[in-house]
């Protein structure tokens, strides 16, 4: 098997990896904010429910969550819901990743929001701003700056975590490399796959460095 063939096959899997990564971010970033509000609400039942949920998701392995999302509907209720989709395995993985990462993001948001001083809220209040205006024009912009470092950490972890989707047979780049291994008895594509992650994360690191620099026009 030639280098170019291996590259093409790995690229195929890498497409899935990138798609899973991108869609997880697209859905988990706003969902995380929603969960964050839930875990900070004054309405106690909702707050406890949300915090218990976050505890469960953060307290169990993502791999098990993939299993639960994908297999449990079929096993307990005789209804393999993801078989309705052409790429149901990918959808199941996406659901599990979005839930898992939204919970992690929600805690980062919460830390960021709680780090904003009471004085900022009071300054907005005496200037007659609404709660929405206060949050979106004063709190959130400052939260964004504070959470860039922990977020970039989590997002880089996500890139590598996507390879867990192969436990429910989503054909990502590692799965593709493993297949080459079992079909062609070639080991090196597995390490070659690592280079894809390395380059991708290298680009992300540059991007986050750029964002941090962009946001350094003010200090708190």
């Amino acid at each position: 098997m030639k280098f170019i063939d291996v590259t093409l096959q790995l690229l195929d899997g890498f497409g899935t990896t990138c798609l899973l990564f991108a869609l997880t971010l697209v859905f988990a970033l706003p969902l995380g904010l929603l969960i964050c509000f839930g875990s900070m609400t004054k309405f106690k039942p909702l707050r406890y429910l949300t915090r218990a949920f976050v505890w469960i998701i953060r307290g169990t392995p993502l791999m098990l969550q993939l299993f639960v999302v994908f297999y449990v509907p079929g096993m307990l209720f005789d209804n393999p819901i993801f078989s309705q989709f052409a790429n149901g395995r990918f959808v199941a993985a996406l659901v599990a990743f979005v839930i898992n990462y939204a919970c992690y993001f929600s805690e980062i948001y919460r830390g960021g929001i709680e780090s904003i001083s009471k004085g900022q809220y009071e300054a907005c209040a005496v200037l007659g701003m609404t709660k929405g205006q206060t949050f979106f024009h004063v709190v959130l912009p400052q939260v964004v700056k504070r959470i860039v470092p922990p977020m970039s950490n989590e997002i880089i972890t996500l890139v590598k975590d996507t390879s867990l989707a192969r436990v429910i047979a989503v054909i990502d780049i590692v799965f593709a490399a493993e297949t080459i291994l079992s079909l062609k008895a070639l080991i090196w594509p597995l390490f070659y796959a690592g280079a894809f992650y390395l380059i991708f994360n290298g680009l992300l690191t540059l991007l986050f460095g750029f964002i941090e620099k962009k946001l350094s026009y003010y200090k708190v």
Partner: peptide
């Protein structure tokens, strides 16, 4: 007392 300006 501590101004509470919007730093951003």
């Amino acid at each position: 007392q501590n101004f509470n300006l919007f730093p951003h």
